[in-house]
Design a protein around this nucleic acid. Sequence first.
DNA 1: AAACGTTGCAACCGCTCCATG
DNA 2: CCATGGAGCGGTTGCAACGTT
Length: 225
Amino acid sequence: MRKPCCDKQDTNKGAWSKQEDEKLINYIRTHGEGCWRTLPQAAGLLRCGKSCRLRWINYLRPDLKRGNFTEDEEDLIIKLHALLGNRWSLIAGRLPGRTDNEVKNYWNSHLRRKLINMGIDPNNHRLITHNHLPRSHDSSSGASIRSPASKVPVTDNTNIHPPEKSGGDNDQVSDAASSLEDEQCGHKLPDLNLDLTISVSASTVDKVEDARRKSQKQSNIIADP
DNA sequence: AAACGTTGCAACCGCTCCATG
DNA sequence: CCATGGAGCGGTTGCAACGTT
């Protein structure tokens, strides 16, 4: 068993106070990010390094763009999710000023429902056949989206791979890729233009391609060991 | 006005990845 | 090559705010 990342008895948990935020900001301004494990002590914070890192990356970083997602951003998230699956950090990396946590939350709270209302399964970006469509009272209430991965399945699970950490998300990527193939072969998703050239730099496409190549390689390894 | 349900977001947890010795 | 530790990631939870009955 590994040691915990910090001595939890001596650390604060929960919401950050203004003073803590200021301490963290001041420390990183003068010393840079450096080693998260030792940062809390050096900065005089009773927090675990992971907690500091998360707070900085998701909330305090000066280059964060806060506020509502634009339609372009929404579009891009949907397209990238179709390609990459739940690789939030990769997706967030294509959205300047957005964090993986923010993208993940936005997906789970807004975009999933949006896709479902459009008749698209958010897990694999395929059209939901009519007998799988959420019943009207379900979709109108937006119910059951609270906890996306576990609590209540939004659609039937026949196309959903169980969350499998090692290589599981590769399944998801390859599944997304195959679903894209499906779309190219026949039923195209309504209003889902998968052309990634709109607001994506060349490096974006490179990264996406990298991820796809990587996942393909790994799925090959899984296929023939 | 109160009770209850829903939503959105910040934060935590546990796992995996990756660099290093 | 292997073990170890730190960083990063994705899933999940807790809770305040908001909406509905």
